[in-house]
């Protein structure tokens, strides 16, 4: 097999540029909805997994076990072809199915991150809060979560990047995400280098931007709690 680099035809990508642009928006939309929903879901699941009440603990545990223990691809197909049609009687479209699957999956992973973050806060913090008369919910919201959140930022950032890439799996239900745009072009021209390299580069650009945002948030929330001593993120000129 020979690869003729002189024969690269990016004009065909250009012809389909609307499809790629739309793909970027769909991918971003799925990722952001799945991630934000996954954080809220993960917060409840993570706290549920810390509950001493068995009827709260076990459903949360089994949920997390199921969604972490089965392939996301299978979950997407199951939700799109089986769960949603049997609840609503018909499909709600690829976007709803895709976003739902990503959200439910991301929630399970975030649950573990959030649970670990909460558990990492010294027991003395809870004891001090409780000794002041705070009910456990008040202590969790005001004392534990604000501290735990800082420790969750790096792993939650990884989860965002992972989700962005995993969102490409929705292509299987014909969602017109970024990967789907590549597939369409590949199918139309029977050429594979240009469309998939383009897709890869576009994903890389997206993860690059997300990585920068995460790095910003990480620095913002790392180091000292003292505002004046927080590390400067951007320094212009001499400091």
């Amino acid at each position: 097999m020979t690869i003729d680099f002189l024969d690269i035809r990016f004009d065909m990508i250009w012809n389909y540029k609307e499809l790629f642009i739309r793909g970027i928006w769909v991918t971003l939309g799925l990722t952001v909805i799945g991630y934000l929903g996954g954080i809220i879901l993960g917060l409840f699941l993570g706290m549920g997994k810390l509950s001493k009440r068995k009827w709260i603990y076990y459903p949360c545990k089994y949920y997390v076990d199921f969604f972490r223990g089965t392939p996301l691809l299978v979950q997407i197909l199951l939700i799109h072809l089986a769960v949603i049609p049997s609840i609503f009687g018909h499909s709600l479209g690829y976007f709803v199915s895709g976003a739902t699957a990503l959200l439910l999956n991301c929630g399970a992973y975030n649950a573990e991150i959030i649970r670990a973050g909460i558990q990492s806060i010294e027991k003395g913090q809870t004891e001090a809060a409780r000794s002041l008369g705070m009910p456990s919910g008040v202590a969790m919201k005001n004392i534990i979560l604000p501290q735990a959140f800082r420790r969750m930022v790096p792993p939650l950032g990884n989860e965002l990047i992972a989700l962005l890439k995993d969102s490409s799996l929705v292509t299987v239900i014909a969602a017109n995400d970024l990967l789907y745009a590549g597939k369409v072009v590949a199918g139309a021209y029977s050429r594979f280098w240009e469309p998939y390299i383009t897709v890869a580069i576009l994903y890389l650009m997206l993860t690059f931007v997300f990585t920068k945002v995460i790095a910003y948030v990480e620095k913002r929330f790392s180091n000292s709690y003292v505002p004046s001593q927080r590390r400067r993120i951007f320094t212009f000129g001499r400091s």
Binding site: E122, G124, Q125, E127, A128, A129, R130, S131, L132, G133, M134, V138, N142, I143, P146, Q147, Y225
Partner: peptide, 30 residues
């Protein structure tokens, strides 16, 4: 517990709040 204050060996101050908020949080919330 509202009527029983406790002081710990390891202080257990809330590190994410300044001194004033450490002191005012429980009267405000509770």
């Amino acid at each position: 517990r509202k009527d029983v204050g406790m002081v710990f060996q390891q202080f257990n101050l809330f590190p994410h709040m300044n001194v004033l908020n450490n002191i005012t949080i429980s009267p405000r919330k509770i």
